[in-house]
């Protein structure tokens, strides 16, 4: 019963919070309106989330977010250094294939977004059967090291969170 009315309780709370931030005003009326939106949106979009899409460990997802935020700052200093002080012809840019152990679509989407935002890599494409990810590196002398770092630092954590 409760699963049908509230398929994704965390999403409901997040949507209500987003609504309150958007109107920039915490009052009883806006809290009710936010909860109504948080109740309605999962009902309408439910069929796009066939597996539920919820992480097993939401708190660990928050820790993962903190790690990614830190890596974003580091990666930007790195990219700024490459862009400003290196001759662009000297950059060893290449594509790297990352074989995926993740199977959940949500986890793969988060991994792809993480790769794009973090040091020197942009995720470019997914193989048609969803088993490997195409990543473009701005400056990678050793493609295997890049793949190993992504698997160790991000994919392992996402696997713990989602599967």
């Amino acid at each position: 019963m409760i699963a049908r009315v509230l398929p994704q309780p965390i999403l409901t709370l997040v949507l209500a919070g987003v609504w309150l931030l958007l109107v920039n005003d915490v009052s009883a009326g806006n809290i009710v309106l936010g909860l109504v939106i948080g109740f309605a949106v999962p009902q309408v979009t439910g069929r796009y989330w066939p597996d539920g899409g919820m992480p097993r460990h939401p708190l660990r997802l928050a820790a993962y977010g903190a790690i990614v935020l830190w890596d974003i700052v580091v990666s930007n200093i790195e990219v700024a250094r490459l862009v400003l002080f290196r001759r662009s012809e000297g950059l060893a840019s290449r594509f790297v294939t990352i074989p995926l152990e993740l199977r959940s679509a949500e986890a793969i989407a988060i991994l792809a977004a993480t790769i794009t935002m973090t040091p020197g890599t942009v995720s470019a494409d997914l193989s048609a059967d969803g088993t490997s990810l195409l990543v473009h590196c701005l400056d990678a002398e050793d493609p295997d090291a890049v793949a190993a770092q992504i698997k160790e630092r991000y994919e392992r954590r996402l696997k713990e969170i989602f599967e």
Binding site: V96, T97, P99, D125, S127, A128, D129, T131, S132, L134
Partner: peptide, 10 residues
């Protein structure tokens, strides 16, 4: 690079 699997890039 090759995908390493049976399917091609999407």
């Amino acid at each position: 690079p090759p995908t390493g699997g049976d399917a091609a890039w999407a």
